[in-house]
Design a protein around this nucleic acid. Structure first.
Lengths: 154, 154
DNA sequence: AGTGTTGAGGATCTAAAGATCTTCAAGTGA
DNA sequence: TCACTTGAAGATCTTTAGATCCTCAACACT
């Protein structure tokens, strides 16, 4: 809803890299995160162009984080993959609003959007990695598929 | 970001109907809200099937709200057009998460998602219509395009 | 009954996202 | 140098959202 497919893959790949710096090959990340391999290649290229990753070709090549995970935010990732135009727009996406075509959600939507923006800009890769680490320690090795079912169904 | 194109159109069409009950023809709404006419037809049909609108064919036909605007929420509209699966999912859209493929955003994303859900379920058509009305009274007839530029650019 | 207007709904077209494959250049190590 | 591994990047395919058109049934009015 907030992220595109590509952006989700990017988040997972970067989190993976933050946790497993030794696994830096595109195919390793794709296998580890169960992400389409060739598609991930394109995404990682975008992240390189955006300055979040560094890449080296050749035999001992691969991808590494361009800066410390504490200094990479969700906002950076979303900006690199999806752009951030939608974060600055009216809730119902009007280019312009006039008397004939107003944006009725604007005032109501604004605080929510601000909080979202705040969340994206404050959450870093390091926090994501820590959350994953904590989750792994907390539960055993056996359990799977316990992520849905969070009591939000209406 | 939150709504699809179709859902945005639905919101605008329903708001239009709440404010102009006399303008109930598909082409009137499409013209008034500057929405693709034939596409809007499909959307209104979905809203009829979802029980938010009533339609009558024939000469004096058109669309009318199936219940009072106070009793139609943004959640109802989003459910009718986009579905609500994404509101109940992990932030990064994993079907299942396991030790190998966890959903690192889950805990961080949850409060935001709850607030979003709350916003969707509490905001009614009547409130939207009132916000538009207020906005129209507040500013004159001349101004246009003042909806962007809300100080959110990073 | 006949005519014109309306929504219903199927068929179709376009654009964008998502995903895959293939080829090429850059680098490593024998 | 040569073989091999890697990312880079273009071409291509699939799927889905978005949008349009056309025909038909329902209805109102004459």
């Amino acid at each position: 809803m907030i992220y595109s497919n590509a952006c989700e893959y990017a988040i997972r790949a970067l989190t993976h890299l933050a946790m497993h710096p030794q696994e830096k090959l595109c195919k390793e990340i794709a296998a580890g995160e169960r992400v389409p391999r060739y598609f991930l290649g394109k995404i990682l290229q975008s992240l390189v162009r955006a300055g979040l990753l560094q890449s080296t070709p050749g035999r001992k090549g691969g991808f590494t984080l361009a800066r410390a995970p504490e200094h990479i935010t969700l906002y950076d990732i979303k900006a690199a993959i999806d752009g951030t135009r939608d974060l600055c727009e009216c809730a119902i996406g009007l280019e312009q609003c006039s008397d004939e075509t107003p944006c009725p959600l604007h005032e109501i939507w604004k605080p929510i959007r601000l909080q979202l923006m705040n969340y994206l800009q404050r959450t870093t890769l390091a926090e994501l990695a820590a959350a994953v680490q904590k989750k792994r320690v907390h539960r055993g090795k056996g359990r799977r598929g316990a992520c849905r079912a969070n009591g939000l169904q209406p």
